[in-house]
Design a protein around this nucleic acid. Structure first.
Lengths: 207, 207
DNA sequence: CATTGTGAACGGGTTCACAGCA
DNA sequence: TGCTGTGAACCCGTTCACAATG
């Protein structure tokens, strides 16, 4: 627990996966698990799971394994998802519309609280309960509501510009749906979500 | 090019990213680039880009760098995306609907050619030009049309079962939108697409 | 006595530095 | 001269193996 050295990011990336598996077990009323069972579920070695979890403290019990509700709580703590995060959606095109309508985020710790676009033709129209706001109002909104996270669903051609504006406005983490790499200051979290990259990776192994 | 040893998967994963950057440069009519410029665009070291590309042959020219159209062609070859891949969409709930309507795959080397679901209430209804087919017809369809790739957008609770059925029917690659790990035979490609995992990873670094 | 937690060994990906070449 | 291609060095993540323990 005495983390003078930062925890490797690659471990942090696995924690949500562990959490997902644990919640799945929990939903089936399983109370205890162990590194071997988790490993089989996830295709990860038991040793790695033990080593990953041990970075944060002794969550397990020798001889019995891990208590699932307890470990879920701990992982949520570590990942800071023991709360609900407000996020904004920037870009109300087809993709943005689909995401705004999609209920998958709500109840899972993230809540879309506003939708922005800069197309005058759609500003003021509504998606679900959201009235589409002009991007020019985003800065005030972000600061007033202390929003840290943005979902970026603008076209690739304006993604860099939009991202820079969001960062200047106080956004600290961007989930980028646009198929383009963003260059942003150190310390800004960026994740990329492009199904095409994943499809293109898989085809290498086909035929 | 004499690959007795297989190319590490981590390199294959970077190729689509390189391709994306190259296509971006190409669209701006840039004809030549080099490892340093690409590295800056992508946040990857120049040495790594050179080493990755050299795995597949000498694509560059000392002193000048890489010819963009040539390198794009080569990467498409390697990734086998110098053709169009037919894919099926399995699961026509909200998410499946959004993906079926979304035009982002067409014209980028992948084409949805059918949509399946097992809910009698929606079988036969249409999304765009697709008539939703019963899953029971999927096996024949996959085999007749030699489909290799499926987008899986069923609920998490039925994803494992659906995936197994698809694999038995001949599917070789699954892009899994359901928030659950799949256990499938060796040799089947699986990619996971769950925005929540990415959001949960980013929150670790916030505040 | 089954399973964790962990130092040590291992393996492999990344960086370095420079020879080679247009 | 400028940039690629690449062996060697380095670094870091994974696996191994076992002591510790409830």
């Amino acid at each position: 627990m005495s983390d003078l050295a930062p925890i490797p990011d690659i471990i942090i990336r696995r924690l949500p996966i562990y959490l997902q598996a644990l919640q799945h077990l929990h939903s089936r009323s399983v109370v205890t698990t162990n590194s071997q069972e988790l490993g089989k579920m996830l295709g990860i070695s038991a040793a790695q799971i033990r080593k990953d979890l041990s970075q944060f403290g002794g969550f397990g019990k020798q001889g019995t394994g891990y208590n699932i509700p307890f470990l879920i709580e701990k992982l949520k703590n570590i990942l800071k998802i023991d709360r609900t995060w407000d996020v904004i959606l920037v870009g109300a095109g087809d993709l943005g519309h689909a995401i705004a309508r999609y209920q998958g985020f709500q109840n899972r710790g993230f809540r879309i609280i506003a939708v922005f676009d800069n197309n005058p033709a759609i500003i003021g129209s509504t998606i679900e309960e959201f009235s589409i706001l002009p991007v020019s109002q985003a800065r005030d909104f972000i600061q007033k509501n202390r929003v840290n996270i943005a979902l970026l669903t603008v076209p690739a051609s304006s993604a860099q510009e939009a991202a820079e504006f969001l960062v200047e406005s106080g956004i600290k983490a961007i989930l980028n749906y646009a198929p383009i790499s963003l260059l942003l200051p150190e310390g800004i979290q960026v994740e990329y979500l492009d199904p095409l990259l994943q499809l293109q990776h898989m085809t290498y192994y086909l035929e």
